[in-house]
Nucleic acid binder design. Structure first.
Lengths: 168, 168
DNA sequence: TTGGAATGTCAACAAAGCTGACGTATTGTT
DNA sequence: AACAATACGTCAGCTTTGTTGACATTCCAA
């Protein structure tokens, strides 16, 4: 064969070789380390971990969200999330208020102090992202986002889409 | 101002807004879950974890690598890696042989059985990657790789580059 | 009104990271 | 030859963050 099993519509399928895919896999692995490195440094000072960061991020994104909702976004068990939330509440970074309609629910908000940490974390993470984006330009960034979205699970993509256009 | 602080060379900087960057951050977070989901399922059956997967992957990539080298690629402590390596060796997936030139070193290889698991894991991970790549096309994939590479730490990028073109 | 479903909390355990200390074999240096 | 440095393995103990199981509270529907 000269062009692979699929019908070629004029463009090469060389980007689908195992070798190319393996490079993508390794790039993803190594890049994720960079992605978390800067916030990790800030978190370490305060003795928090990535789980705290994720909780803070999505509470900031969806103020008033319930524990259950946060659970399904983060994809962990409620017991695991609860431990993190408890410390954040004790430390005064997150406020938990009993639901008005349904008293079983707890609505979560960042306190002013929590918002300060959120800002520090997301600034750090955005700085690296911005530098990368600026280096490669808008077309590459568009491709980046397309691949990531195509890589998500359907359920996960649902969460992502739901949040995506909320504030634009 | 009408066009932002930087000098515009004709193209918009809208892709550098905080909002766009936040979307990229969330896309990265959600996509990484998809990225690991398929191998995770296979690993769970065998009571292994992601740490085992990473070790197997890079031993496959660099047959005969030493423990020290693997350590610096993975970015963990030797105690942590050793725990994983020990179980893989006990289970007969990895072979550790004393170095010929330097007898202090141990050279790591996958056994045939280890290669079988490696293949299963990377097939699963590649399938998803391939589907994503195919959906978005080669230009988007090129952008994806560019952004990931720009996001890495310098040290990490060094490991990535060193491995990148070994087999093409 | 009562029993089941939903929401959230507490307890105990496991995986996988970490530091620190130490032993052993080997290599390199003085 | 003596000594320091390197590579590796291991023990002990700690932290973060995931898990399952048991339980209290609240809501809703039969």
């Amino acid at each position: 064969m000269s062009d692979g099993p699929q019908q070629q519509t004029g463009q090469s399928l060389l980007f689908l070789t195992d070798e190319q895919l393996r490079k993508g896999i390794e790039a993803m692995f190594f890049a994720y380390r960079g992605f978390t490195a800067d916030p990790d440094r800030i978190l370490e000072e305060k003795s928090y971990g990535r789980a705290h960061h994720r909780a803070i991020h999505f509470i900031h994104r969806s103020p008033g969200t319930t524990v259950n909702n946060l659970l399904s976004i983060l994809g962990v068990t409620k017991q695991s999330l609860n431990r993190v939330l408890r410390t954040l509440i004790e430390d005064g970074l997150v406020a938990s208020t009993v639901g008005k309609k349904d008293k079983r629910e707890r609505h979560l908000h960042l306190t002013p102090e929590g918002a300060v940490l959120e800002r520090a974390l997301s600034d750090a993470q955005r700085d690296r992202m911005r530098a990368a984006y600026r280096t490669v330009g808008p077309d590459a960034v568009a491709g980046f986002r397309q691949v990531l979205e195509a890589m998500m699970d359907d359920q996960t993509r649902h969460h992502y889409e739901a949040m995506k256009d909320r504030a634009e």
